[in-house]
């Protein structure tokens, strides 16, 4: 273990430079949030991830955000275990009927103001599962969505750009919000 630790003292960090927030995401958010209260979050966001029927591909790439290359926490964005501690719900999957209630409950217990990001083609449109008897439809058919990040699955860099756009938007000057929706 000592060699490993010693090596890490002399090697350069693997972390990539911060990408620019995705302009398309900024545009979508500007529209969504203009009609909504904004709040200064002190440049930090807590995210609760909800798999609402994903194939698990999207989860793998969301996971990658925590590795040394993307290192999401350096932006003050972190994943939390309970929706009660979250500002953002990151939702994947074509929302199966069997997960619909759990998603609705997670949304209900997330304190206001809150934002919902639909991650992946399934969450955005149902993807290859659209139209199935077992799926309730894209996330927006179940709870209000503020930002869509497409891809099957989206690459970590796209997730990062989207989340940075969200961070930039919600922490832009604005009064403390009273409510979310």
């Amino acid at each position: 273990m000592h060699t490993l630790l010693a090596k890490s003292l002399i090697t350069k960090p693997l972390t990539i430079a911060a990408p620019q927030p995705d302009p398309a995401a900024l545009a979508e958010l500007a529209q969504a949030l203009d009609q909504r209260a904004r709040r200064l979050l002190g440049h930090s966001l807590s995210i609760r991830e909800v798999d609402a029927g994903s194939c698990n591909g999207c989860e793998l790439e969301i996971h990658a955000l925590n590795n040394a290359f993307y290192d999401l926490e350096r932006f003050g964005i972190k994943f939390v275990a309970s929706p009660k501690h979250a500002d953002v719900l990151l939702v994947t999957g074509p929302v199966t009927h069997n997960m619909k209630i759990a998603l609705e409950r997670a949304y209900a217990v997330t304190p206001d103001p809150k934002w919902v990001v639909a991650v992946g083609d399934c969450a955005c449109s149902g993807g290859v599962f659209a139209g199935s008897y077992a799926c309730a439809g894209p996330v927006s058919a179940v709870i209000p969505v503020d930002l869509h990040i497409k891809g099957c699955p989206p690459q970590p860099i796209d997730l990062l750009k989207g989340l940075l756009a969200l961070l930039a938007t919600v922490s832009a000057t604005g009064d403390v919000a009273t409510t979310g929706t």
Partner: peptide, 29 residues
């Protein structure tokens, strides 16, 4: 059963290309 998406039924009647895509999304890992 929470992530049951009805995949077996979606295969039914799918053309080869669509079915191959679906097969690749049974378990993303």
């Amino acid at each position: 059963g929470y992530v049951h998406k009805g995949i077996e039924k979606l295969f039914e009647g799918a053309d080869l290309a669509t079915a191959a895509k679906l097969a690749g999304r049974i378990s993303g890992d």
